[in-house]
Amino acid sequence: MKKLVVLFLVLAVIVVIPAVQSAFAAGAEPGEYLDRRVVIWNLFFKMMTIAFVVGAVVSGTMIWQCWRFRESHPKAKPTAYEGTDW
């Protein structure tokens, strides 16, 4: 449990610090304008990275369980509820 807390703390720091930095750094110098394309597409790609990782986990799980728990799988065994009027 402690390890998990530490892990999440580390992750939080890794995510938060760059965000705070970019928040204070952007548009600071006069004459330099923020490029909205960079900001928006960066956000987009960050979100897509997360979305595709989560998507891979979710759809991977579903594909695996559809393969593993199909009734024709060699190791398929009846569930506890079969034969009852659940």
Binding site: V15, A19, S22, A23, R36, L43, M47, I50
Partner: peptide, 15 residues
């Protein structure tokens, strides 16, 4: 996380 990132980016481009 999504909300925070989006909020930050929106703040930047709206300024």
């Amino acid at each position: 996380w999504v909300g925070a990132e989006a909020w930050e980016a929106e703040r930047l481009v709206e300024h």
